[in-house]
Computed example of a mutant assay.
Amino acid sequence: MKREFKFDFGTASAGAAEGYTKITADTVYDPTAGCGFVAGAGRVYAKDRGESAAALKRDFVIPLEAVFLVDVPDGTYQVTLMAGDDITETETTVKAGEGRLMVLKHRTSAGQYATHAFSVWVTDGKLRLAFSGLAPRVNAVEIAPRDTAVTLFLAGDSTVTDQPAEGWPYTGWGQMLPKWLKADVAVANYALSGRSSKSFISEGHLDKIWARMKPQDYLLIQFGHNDQKADEERHTDPFTTYKETLKLYIDGARSRQAVPVLVTSVQRRFFDAEGRLIDTHGDYLTAMRELAQEEGVPLVDLAEKSRRLFEELGPEETKKLFLWAVPGEYINHPNGVEDNTHFHELGGIRVAELVAESLKELGLQPLRMYLRF
């Protein structure tokens, strides 16, 4: 199966730039071709601004909530996107895979063309790019293997995982983390809803990470929300089985010459009468901080970072970060929702920023160089 692609998006009449494959608004994905827009997913239009413009700039597609698929072998790929328009300003958002945020509302002015490069972790044989925005443009896309990219593996629960599109704006912070990373890093988000540090291992999910991890990769570990649950499959005791289980992640990463990073559980949205955040994680936070000290493991104290942020915003403003909606506000939640644990996309972006800020503060090399700060 081919691993490198160069696509020129636009109109058939404009032809394809040399060395590129033409993709028009009518190029629908089918397994034989191995690339194209997903039928029924949004709308796609095409425009040609005329022969005076350079080959890749004269024409483009306007993908409105549209999804472009390319069949590729599993692995890490660098995607380079060109977006712009000779005569008007544009705004484009790009997500990859299961809603991982790569480019957020990037604007270009008339005559300006922006190039964005990012790395995508592919595990199902399909590289998926979803486009949206007020006035999105796609002029060209190049896809090439990036096997040397650092992989940032995520192990965690529903506050971290890639939430499916049918639940939007329900979002995990790991889903938004790529926005804060350069193309040298690919995020491999293995976090899953409802899992504890114990059940993540017993269900075989950690083994999937071990099978793909290479030296100099990183493993971010956030568990605690579900370790608190009473059922035998998930429950751990903070100062015994919780620490013992987390040590399996630490030792496994180190044995593969990768870097483990512990992440204290992000806070829930519960306030007391004075507007102070009520901690619901208790000894699990203390135990993880102790373990980081004992094992010499870098610690992202997301519990403390998120506490400060949520208290600064207060009870009302934090509703914008969490999955709060009135009936009819979002088509995926017609009856409304009041969720004090899980994030709205805006919250996922903000919490992901806290994680990226913390990684910068830790000074981990080479990861620190790959952060967009």
Rank of each mutant, 00 (worst) to 15 (best):
K22A: 14
V28M: 14
G34D: 07
V38A: 09
A39F: 13
K47Y: 11
R49Q: 13
G50Y: 13
G50A: 05
K57Q: 13
L81T: 03
A83M: 13
D85L: 05
T90H: 04
E91P: 01
G97Q: 01
E98K: 07
H116I: 02
V122Y: 05
S132A: 14
N139V: 04
V141H: 05
I143Y: 12
P145M: 14
T151G: 03
T151K: 14
G156F: 13
D157L: 11
S158C: 06
V160H: 00
W168R: 12
W168V: 03
Y170P: 02
Q175P: 04
W180L: 06
V185K: 01
Y190S: 00
E203Q: 07
D207R: 01
M213G: 07
K214P: 09
D217R: 15
G224S: 14
H225L: 06
Y242A: 04
I250C: 09
I250N: 09
I250D: 06
Q257T: 04
A258H: 07
V259D: 06
L262T: 00
V263T: 01
V266Q: 04
G282M: 09
M288F: 12
P298A: 00
R308Q: 07
F310L: 02
V326L: 11
D339V: 06
E345F: 12
L364N: 06
R368T: 02
L371C: 04
R372F: 02
